[in-house]
Design a protein around this nucleic acid. Structure first.
Lengths: 109, 109
DNA sequence: TCGACTATTCGGCATTGCTAAGTACCAGTA
DNA sequence: TACTGGTACTTAGCAATGCCGAATAGTCGA
């Protein structure tokens, strides 16, 4: 992943994280680790935390503090109703973009 | 298209414009008009021009000034060798992202 | 006691798209 | 002539997002 990825992640990373949370509640450290496993090798630690703060402030997720056996307490996030609506909107926008790009890729051969 | 689109365009708009230029040379006004036809209804005029300036400065495109019958001269951009390489890299990054997102969408049902 | 891993926070920076205004050139029209 | 409208590009400043680097804190094993 090069520098292009950094800019391309803007806007999509939020959707990615919300999509993860739509599947199951999770906390920052866990999400970052999972993303890195999935190939987002250079996702910065702080990026995910900052994103989680933002979506919380917008009321898209609920938060619960859960003690950890191995460190400071975890902030476990879960997608709420508003978050689900927002995620659907995200998928619509994404689909639109993906379709245009697929057309361009085919046309450019 | 909502606000999500604005952030999602960051990084991808550049690829979109380069992909257009890989098909045929074009100038800013033309590209903006085409994008709007394609459904990018609220692409700002200035956005495309600024983007073209950037890709020119990075040496991804060649420029030629061509007189217009209906206004000031056009700056016609065409993708050069470096631009083509960069575009391929863009497609690789895009593919990676699109695959992850498709997996997430399916998983989240 | 000293790392190593877990877990979160914060301040400042770079990039990118949007807004808004301005410049410039030409054609048609009153 | 003056005005309007379409074509075509430029510029300055703003907002949002991801990255970098450092700091804070808790737990465990060497």
């Amino acid at each position: 992943m090069g520098k292009q990825a950094t800019e391309m992640l803007k806007g999509t990373l939020e959707g990615i994280v919300l999509a993860i949370l739509s599947d199951r509640p999770a906390y920052g450290y866990e999400i970052t680790a999972w993303l890195r496993e999935q190939g987002f090798s250079d996702i910065a630690e702080g990026t995910v935390y900052a994103l989680l703060v933002r979506v919380e402030q917008r009321g898209l997720v609920d938060v619960e503090k859960v003690p950890s056996e191995k460190g400071p307490p975890r902030k476990v996030y879960s997608l709420n109703a508003r978050g689900r609506e927002y995620l659907e909107e995200f998928w619509r926008t994404w689909s639109f973009l993906a379709e245009r790009l697929e057309q361009l890729r085919e046309g450019g051969k």
